[in-house]
Design a protein around this nucleic acid. Structure first.
Length: 314
DNA sequence: GCATGTCAAGTTGTG
DNA sequence: CACAACTTGACATGC
């Protein structure tokens, strides 16, 4: 039997769908603040319950499409950690039902081997010199870690944050904060190279020292090169996953404006198969696809790679 | 119905 | 110095 290698590779979708009828709701502090507490909780309860239902639907949909990983939107439970309007699931009228649905999702993901992850947004910065920023970040991470535990999500992926004029000092601050984090966060946290500041080469020492898996984003690497080849970066990042006995995560995008001329950072609708690194072929790893056409882009890339393999095989 | 401005939070780079 | 970009979309409001 011909081995093409794609069988052991898992492709992931990030947060949203373009055409499939799966959507997530949210609300704002401004709107909530205008309501008495009871009505706030009623409104939040409906949204949260709706969002977990749609998360279940999301997993059923990715399974049907042959997609093996899903990144969960950070505001699954909108404004949950906000200082004024924040809440716990237990405060919501449908709290118990929501918790039951989350448990169902965890079992479903495990049964069908769908890998789940979180990616907190830009406000979560552990390298900041401002204690308040770090405190808020840890609070947000605690929220996401509790969600991750309830849903069976294995990864909370972060960028290293700002440079503040001195990368080495910023990374030292990150390391100190990381060491003090509770296990529920620490066991899930991963670090990703970004497209302006921190490269794979910058992050490797920190990742090795603290046993933090490094999520290798090849698009960011191409935007923000560090002297390592794609293959070198892939293999070095792979070692940080092997060290903790977990399957490697990578990210892939194509530039909307192409590699010549315009800003390559914004993501294209689809992935150009030429941007898929040759050295990834046949590796046991998860590749999250960051593309604006969402599930359509993942499905098309899988088909394109399959076709290329068939050609190569004759 | 549909267009439009707004959305908790940080940091960087551009105009 | 102000402002957009970042995984963007979706909501609430006003026409």
């Amino acid at each position: 039997m011909r081995t093409r290698g794609w069988e052991i590779m898992r492709f992931g979708l990030c947060c949203l769908f373009r055409d499939e009828p799966v959507s997530f709701r949210t609300t704002t502090v401004r709107v909530l603040s205008a309501l008495p507490r009871e009505q706030q909780l009623q409104k939040l309860s409906v949204i949260c319950r709706d969002n977990v239902s749609n998360l279940q639907l999301a997993l059923e949909t990715v399974r049907r499409l042959g997609i093996g990983a899903f990144r969960i939107m950070s505001p699954l439970f909108p404004r949950m950690t906000h200082p004024e309007v924040g809440y716990a699931l237990g405060d919501l009228p449908d709290g118990a039902a929501i918790i039951t649905l989350m448990n169902d999702i965890r079992l479903y993901a495990r049964r069908h081997e769908i890998r789940l992850s979180f990616h907190p947004d830009q406000f979560v910065v552990l390298s900041s010199p401002h204690a308040k920023v770090v405190d808020n970040s840890i609070r947000e991470l605690e929220y996401q870690a509790q969600l991750a535990e309830a849903l069976g999500a294995e990864t909370i992926n972060l960028h290293a944050g700002g440079v503040y004029g001195d990368k080495r000092l910023a990374l030292e601050r990150f390391g100190r904060v990381f060491s003090g984090l509770p296990a529920i966060i620490k066991s899930r946290l991963t670090l990703e190279n970004d497209d302006i500041s921190y490269s794979v080469r910058d992050l490797l020492p920190l990742c090795e020292q603290h046993a933090i898996p490094l999520v290798y984003d090849v698009h960011h690497h191409r935007c923000n090169p560090d002297g390592l080849s794609v293959e070198q970066a892939t293999l070095l990042a792979a070692e940080t996953w092997a060290a903790v006995g977990r399957e490697q995560y990578c990210h892939l995008s194509s530039p909307r404006a192409g590699w010549q001329g315009g800003d390559p950072k914004p993501h294209a609708d689809y992935i150009d198969p030429a941007d898929f690194p040759d050295c990834w072929r046949g590796r046991a790893m998860t590749v999250d696809i960051e593309a604006k056409a969402k599930e359509l882009a993942v499905v098309r890339l899988m088909a394109d790679l399959e076709a290329l393999s068939d050609e190569a095989a004759g």
